[in-house]
Amino acid sequence: MTTHYLVLSALLFAIGGVGVLLRRNAIVVFMCVELMLNACNLAFVTFARQHGNLDGQLIAFFVMVVAAAEVVIGLAIIVMIFRTRRSASVDNANLLKY
């Protein structure tokens, strides 16, 4: 079963990555990032069971904590950007370039 879980995790991760690359709405991009984090968590939990110790679960727990903090800050940034630019598109914020 371990292989199945890991392949599922890889699939979800790749789908999240493609989403990050394709979507322009910053919030959706952010959701895709969360999806990738969750895929990683699945792999951690799977490996925890495979190896029979708690370390994987522990790391997954810390990832969740960090993800929560990240979401808070990321969303605050999105709100601020939206407030100044009246747009949540990541393509609009492209002033930092050549």
């Binding site: 392949v7 890889a10 699939l11 991760f13 790749a14 990555g17 493609v18 690359l21 394709l22």
Partner: peptide, 13 residues
Amino acid sequence: AIVAGLGFGLLLA
């Protein structure tokens, strides 16, 4: 993006 995403997923899988 699709090429990279598919490639990456396949590679991992």
